[in-house]
Nucleic acid binder design. Structure first.
Lengths: 121, 121
DNA sequence: TGTCTATATTACCGGCAGGTTAATTAACTG
DNA sequence: CAGTTAATTAACCTGCCGGTAATATAGACA
């Protein structure tokens, strides 16, 4: 129960079962029993996972008779997207470095040795 | 030590200390002592966090004399970005719903003629 | 009413995550 | 070589997490 919103969201997402639940809910509401079908796991376990997701604000629960269907509320994911996006430059840069490293492998260097056989650019 | 790559990454990111370490490394290499400065935490604790980050492939470690500086290797974050992006439609949709709800509030001309002096909020 | 169905709650357990202190390795320095 | 600095390892504690079984609650329906 971290006050930190992002931490709560990422903790919730860190479990594969919970991600699977979200994936299922992406295609529409579902009851707890429905949600528990694909998993080799008892219902209380699923209920616990749902509580974690609910606290993170990733799902919401309705109440129709004895069913308490869940639906996806994806808003907190935007915060995750924003956070990770701040690092986009870094992973793209490393791809660039890989690219220029490969390029550098196939053409002789220009800096160190003064003027030798330079190719274009 | 989950085999699941995405799970390892998200688990690593779920800790605020580890995210702070990544943020620090985004501005350049740092030694373990440097990294531990901002935190009220002993060095072995930091070492453990670094191990988690390293297993997730989010940092790499060099070796210069008795220092073992860390640097950011952000590649795994791309997987996170891709995963969360699959849900972008869902949170944007809910924003759309909010948007049209607000719009509907301030111009009730066609469908509903209400205009019953709602309190703002 | 009683019973069936769907779900939640309680109590419990094993294991791991995150922290500590103390000891240890590794590399430089005088 | 001894001493210092940097970092890791070892041993340990504690609390939470993910699971279980058993029980309770709430609504549907005979």
């Amino acid at each position: 129960m971290p006050v930190d919103h992002l931490t709560a969201t990422l903790s919730a997402l860190a479990d594969p079962t919970r991600r699977a639940i979200l994936a299922r809910l992406a295609s529409g509401e579902a009851s707890v029993t429905e949600l528990s079908q694909p998993f080799d796991m008892t219902m209380p376990a699923i209920t616990k996972h749902l509580k974690v997701l609910e606290k993170a604000g990733l799902i919401a629960r309705d109440r129709q008779a004895q069913w308490r269907p869940c639906r996806l509320t994806a808003a907190p994911l935007e915060e995750v997207a924003d956070w990770v996006d701040a690092y986009r430059r870094h992973w793209e840069e490393s791809l660039d470095r890989l690219g220029s490293y490969l390029k550098q492998l196939q053409k002789p260097k220009e800096k160190k040795r003064g003027r030798t056989k330079r190719s274009r650019e």
